[in-house]
Every structure is written in C-alpha cells, then in structure tokens.
Design a protein around this nucleic acid. Structure first.
Length: 256
DNA sequence: ATGGCTTAGTTCCTAAGA
C-alpha cells in the first residue's frame, strides 16, 4: 500500500491537481496539510467522487489537515494535541484506517526567529513528542506523516548558507526532531536515501524549481511495527513541475 | 542572488508561508 503526505497549499486552488494525483497514483492513504479552508468548505464531494473517504480538521485562511482513504472512511482518533488548550491552530489529525494508525501533521513554521512564532514551534514539538511516545507504547503499525517544517540534516537542503538563519534549520528545531526519532521512529525517506539530496519543497520565488533549489521538510515517521513493513519511500517530484502546482511535492512510503 | 511568488481574506492591500 502507498501512503502519501502532501502539503497542498490551499485545497481549493489545488483541487484539480489533487484529483489528478489520486487518479494517476491511486494512493491508499493521503495525509494533506495546509487546506486553508474552513470545515464547511472542504470539497468532500469532489474527494468522494474520486473514490476516497475523508476526515478533515479545517481552519479558515490557513493551516488545516486531512486524511483520505481509498474506498474507505478513516476512523477518527484525535484532533489537535493536548497541552495548550488556547491553541486553535488546526495542525494535527489522527485516524485509524485499515489497521494502521495515521497522523497528518502540520508543524508550525517558526519564522521569524527569534520570536513568539519560533517559541510556539518548539512548544508544539514538545506536545507532539508526548503524543508520539504514547503511540509508540501501543506497539502498533503507526505513521506520523506531514510537513514537519524541519530540514533534518545539512544534505537535506540545496544550500546550507541560504537557509542558515531560517527556523527550519535551527539547532533547536533539529534537536527536537532528533529527540522524536530517538523515541524509536524511523525516518523512512532518510532510510531509503541516506546521503540526502532528496527534496520535497521548492520555493515559488527566485526560480527555485528551475534551479532544483529545494529542501526536505515533509517526513514520514514509522513506528517499529510499520518500519518492518517498509518496502520503498520517495517523492513524486514530477507533480511540483505541473501547472498551478503546490510548492511541496507528494512524498510517500510503500508498506507491505 | 530566497529578490522575484502564491494563496486566501479583510481584496486593488495585508498576512502567512518557508
């Protein structure tokens, strides 16, 4: 089965691209981020017409996450993370589908840094880590899939210098990501492409796509029970080059 | 040489993204 994470950067603007992707790739499970739509404007009918059941956690204007399942409706386990009741950002949706536990994650960007947005990013990371530890303790096949807004290693970026001051590459961001991995999660893309150079995001600006000036920030973290079933992981890079594309490309794992 | 772009909402500008 193919499980995808895809930051669509506005599901309304991206709907033709998304429907096309579903038809061409027929992924089994798709985690979406940056819906940028409220719950009542999510295009559920179009998704259903494409053959997918869906759960979504929307927000007007920005954020918003969803999980789609081919020929099935995901069963909701949680929306939002504990630990900060006043946080109203829609960034976490956890479901169960076909015996798999799946979370769609949109971690805060954290720019500008330093400042309250960067502090929020680190707090959100801690809250995610608490949930992730509980998920591991259940010893089930589990996938944390999403836009983590972290460039884990220097070779995950086209230019260390260009990103040096960015929140995505700060030591604190990387340390938080490493602490998460150290719980026992497998970074599937890293495992399959251990020397880096695999990008999931190319900025709209400065001809980044044309120069292949990208970086890797969309990640799929597998519990040991899911990692045992991993057969492949990669990026459907070609979709970044299409008309009115998202600035992210679909990123995926195959599990037995 | 991340400067430039794109999306959505409060639209003919602003906020947010990364």
């Amino acid at each position: 089965m193919k499980l995808v994470t895809y930051n669509v950067n506005g599901i309304k603007a991206r709907l033709p691209r998304l429907v096309e992707y579903l038809a061409e790739q027929q992924p089994d499970i798709v985690c979406l981020q940056e819906l940028k739509c409220s719950d009542d404007t999510f295009p559920a009918a179009d998704i259903e017409a494409a053959g997918y059941g869906a759960l979504w956690h929307g927000q007007k204007g920005f954020n918003g996450v969803a999980v789609l399942a081919r020929g099935a409706t995901p069963v909701e386990r949680a929306r939002g993370l504990a630990g900060e009741p006043e946080d109203e950002h829609s960034r976490y949706l956890e479901v169960e589908v076909d015996g798999l536990v799946v979370a769609s994650i949109y971690l805060p960007n954290g720019n500008p840094r330093p400042g309250p947005k960067f502090d929020y990013k680190l707090r959100w990371f801690d809250r995610l880590a608490a949930r992730a530890a509980a998920l591991l303790a259940a010893e089930r096949p589990t996938v944390l899939a999403g836009d983590f807004n972290v460039i884990p290693f220097d070779d995950d970026s086209f230019s260390v210098r260009a990103m040096q001051e960015d929140a995505l590459m700060q030591p604190e961001s990387r340390a938080a990501y490493r602490r998460l991995l150290a719980q026992g999660w497998t970074d599937a893309l890293r495992l399959r492409h251990p020397t880096g150079g695999t990008w999931t995001f190319w900025d709209y600006q400065a001809g980044a796509w044309a120069r292949d000036a990208g970086f890797r920030i969309d990640h799929l973290l597998l519990s040991p029970q899911a990692a045992d079933r991993l057969t492949d992981a990669d990026v459907d890079k070609e979709y970044r080059g299409r008309e009115r594309a998202s600035d992210h490309a679909p990123t995926w794992v195959r599990l037995r």
